[in-house]
């Protein structure tokens, strides 16, 4: 690169400035939601990359969270209600397997059997609902297993609590006792697991999007890491952090809805 062009570029990107000035310039830009250009993908800004890829990740993430919660809670509740039975035992074996199988291995196995061998579902890409199934299951399995274990032990605690005895002593039938009294109390630990759940889905997306060739943000992040594309690494990291903060805030709000003992400030409305 001719020296005059290099000087020109240094000036354009502020590379002549001392490091701390560069840093504050970057912070100012970030505060205005501008993460600068990509160092490796010419002509693309980090914002372009995030805008382009985030919707895929969001869709996949929400589907996985839904699957993990729905099946995790279901499995945990059934296991607790049929405590020490074959059903309980089976559910807990499934759970410990779910925790022990890494998501990328599950992804590969699912891809091989359901897409390549049986040809029931598409191998890769992200064009239809069918495309989302395998990656969502692969992402959701480990957190689902955690939720099932959490839900089971919490449900067992609640079911042996005094207020469940009170409810039974009122003559309510088992279904009403379970759904109206036990479930809402037992679900609290799962609500506090929602933060770690979002993290698990997010970091899981790094490999899952790669395996299923989904042009999402996780895949972009991994690309930027392998290419050492520092502005993209920085930008996506900041974006991930913001995303996590938002979801933690949402979880706290959800908590106040479920548990009347927790309120914001003095006024906090009744749930």
């Amino acid at each position: 690169m001719p020296p005059e062009i290099e000087a020109q570029m240094n000036a354009k990107y502020g590379l002549d400035d001392p490091l701390h000035i560069q840093y504050f310039d970057y912070l100012k830009d970030v505060a205005q939601w501008d993460f600068g250009p990509s160092l490796k993908l010419t002509g693309q800004s980090v914002n372009d990359i995030i805008n382009r890829s985030f919707e895929y990740s969001l869709l996949l993430g929400l589907e996985s969270i839904f699957l993990a919660l729905a099946f995790g809670i279901l499995l945990g509740v059934i296991a607790a209600l049929r405590h020490n039975s074959g059903v309980d035992y089976t559910a807990m074996v499934i759970a410990v397997l779910g925790i022990s199988v890494p998501n990328f291995i599950l992804a590969a196995v699912l891809q091989y059997f359901f897409a390549m061998k049986l040809q029931l579902l598409p191998v890769a890409g992200f064009d239809s609902f069918a495309h989302t199934l395998l990656p969502a299951i692969a992402l959701a399995t480990t957190p689902m297993a955690f939720i099932a274990r959490l839900m089971r032990s919490s449900m067992l605690d609640v079911l042996s609590s005094d207020y469940i005895k009170t409810a039974k002593a009122k003559g309510l039938n088992e279904r009403v006792v379970t759904y109206r009294h036990a479930l809402r109390n037992a679900i609290m630990p799962v609500v506090s697991y929602l933060g770690p759940l979002v993290v698990a889905i997010l970091t899981g997306s790094f490999v899952i999007e790669e395996i299923f060739n989904i042009p999402g943000l996780g895949a972009e992040f991994v690309n930027s890491v392998t290419n050492r594309d520092y502005t993209v690494i920085m930008g996506t990291t900041v974006f991930f952090s913001a995303l996590l903060l938002v979801s933690i805030l949402l979880v706290d709000l959800l908590y106040t809805l479920i548990d009347p003992r927790i309120k914001f400030g003095k006024e906090g409305g009744k749930s």
């Binding site: 005094d162 207020y163 009170t166 009294h181 109390n185 009347p260």
Partner: peptide, 12 residues
């Protein structure tokens, strides 16, 4: 029951 602190459902 014995303990009124735990014998009422806290979320109702």
């Amino acid at each position: 029951f014995q303990d009124p602190m735990t014998s009422l459902n806290p979320t109702m």
